[in-house]
Design a protein around this nucleic acid. Structure first.
Lengths: 156, 156
DNA sequence: GATCCAATACTCGGATAGCTGGTGTCCGAGTAACAGAGG
DNA sequence: CCTCTGTTACTCGGACACCAGCTATCCGAGTATTGGATC
């Protein structure tokens, strides 16, 4: 099991936009070039971020993508959720109600222990990502790298 | 992104074996029938559990699978790890070192903030599963269900 | 010089093929139990 | 009645097709800029 590589691309993208005054806008091809990403495929993921309300897109000259909100109010989980969806990666198929040892529906009013455990683990994972904001991630980028990125991308 | 369905099958399997005296052995077809699983495909996952040292397999008449250790000493993580592997589902591709905005290798001695965050989240998920033993899960199965399962499978 | 308009170039959005990894299936290898013959 | 042996049936293990979802790519829709013509 692995996350789509788009998750990494998009996290780096929002962190990059978080280093730009007003969070952008930056045209897609610039972001792609900056990170060495395949421009057209990269587009697929940016669309998802726009749809999820993480980014705003503007067309035409001087257009591009920018953060929909200040980085302090965008969590890493929102970015991951936009791409991977909000559901747990464990899907209980209620096999306890199948086969010769099937439990009766009355015995299954509550999720089984395995389902509950997986749910708790998933929420723990999600919680860690929800705790981290884009601003937090930007803050961990060395200052001289931030300056370099800003110079390279603003008015480029 | 989703976990293989084999994860659910195997977790239910070890919980079932945990309800059997000495943890088995139970032949594969009985387990499959009990849970309504496709016997032959199910085999694929049981092999992985044997390889990982979670189950022991014995061939011939009265053979089958049994727990390699008491349920108190088998964690849910071991079962998941046997199927999905031990690596995080986030694979950092170090895109900060790619493209026109590439950072120099000297600037990348430590994992990037995104990588670190994902790693912490993954460890949090793994930790939850490591905390839960097979015995814990067995303990959450209603007693009358345990009795029913034992009657249905022992000497069947 | 200011205003209006049309052409232009630039941007994003949706729909369409290809490939890796999970899904599903097959047959062969090995072993413990069992039954029968012999002592 | 006990022992030995050959058969038998049962079990698991590894190798081979198939399909969904991620990967990769294409073209079309819409807009701000820009340059020129007009007033």
């Amino acid at each position: 099991m692995k996350l789509s590589q788009g998750v990494e691309w998009c996290l780096h993208t929002v962190v990059l936009l978080g280093q730009i005054p007003q969070g952008g806008p930056l045209p897609r091809h610039l972001i792609a070039r900056h990170h060495g990403l395949p421009d057209e495929y990269f587009a697929k993921y940016l669309k998802l971020l726009v749809k999820a309300g993480v980014l705003l897109a503007s067309t035409g000259p001087r257009g591009g993508y920018r953060l929909a909100r200040p980085g302090e109010h965008i969590t890493a989980w929102e970015v991951v959720e936009a791409i991977e969806g909000d559901q747990s990666f464990f899907h209980c198929q209620e096999i306890r109600q199948c086969g010769s040892g099937a439990a009766s529906p009355e015995e299954c009013n509550e999720p089984c222990a395995i389902h509950q455990m997986m749910q708790v683990a998933f929420l723990s994972w999600k919680e860690q990502l929800s705790r981290t904001t884009v601003a937090d991630l930007v803050g961990q980028v060395p200052e001289h790298v931030r300056d370099r990125n800003r110079l390279a991308l603003v008015n480029a």
